[in-house]
Amino acid sequence: MLHFEFMQRAFWAGGLIALIAPILGVFLVLRRQSLMADTLSHVSMAGVALGSVLHMSPVLAGFLFAVIGGIAIEQLRRSYRAYSEVPVAIIMTSGLALAMVLMSMKSNLSKSFSSYLFGSIVAVNPLQLMIIAAVTAGGLIFFAVFRRHLYTLTFDEETAAVGGVQVKLLTFAFAVMSGLIVAAAMPIVGVLLVSALIVLPSAFALRFAGGFLQACILAVCAGLTGVFGGLTASYYTDTPPGGTIALTLLLILLAGIAVQKVGQRRRQRHLGEAVRAVPSASRQVMSTSYQEEETNVS
């Protein structure tokens, strides 16, 4: 399969995105913004539509819109502090509505749009590959350089601010980064399944990881497995690559949950027996006293 140049490019593009998207996903999930990726991809599609209506580069316009969408969500998040999913919903609807209206302006667009909706990883061209490589490199550098600040920020924004983190600037940079990664991932799995690459691996990793770094590494491993497995499967079974990748990631997640459940049950049974085997004197003591006050005084 790898002797086809288009498959090589697909593997490269998928692999690069699978390096960065799951890390972004860990942060998005922890910030309760797991639908952010979906939203930005819709907004990005509106950008692509606008780009072609205005005879600009659709790719560039897509990137621009995704970044602006990310910043807009961040701004709205400040006014809807108690409902962090509301800004996401607002921007998602706006993006989709705008994309629909713009698409109707150019009737010959709708065909190429299906490739945006469902992705066309096997049709990745060298320019797109370069863009993906640049975004991935930039993203990895961003997350590596700001790892301490991002950890602190994700844990609690106020203590981060007191600790000298430029909260506004960093969340702004994070929003821009989200936009770039989503816009780069869009051609691979498509608008509708961008979340699969960003959220599913981190959903898997967060169940298992003991620590923060471990969560990021596990998420990337799950992402890479899902992308390469999904691509291979889609090549041999002739199924759409975007959907197959998403399903593979889902399978990984479900398998993970199942393994964890079984392991937990076995451990509990084991520990339960161990506790019962201990002589009763050393077990936890429960007592009820109605006369604690008096006892203490005397």
Binding site: L30, F155, D156, L206, A209, G211
Partner: peptide, 9 residues
């Protein structure tokens, strides 16, 4: 009262 799913030791 932090997010109890926060993956941290």
């Amino acid at each position: 009262s932090f997010n109890s799913g926060f993956p941290s030791k």
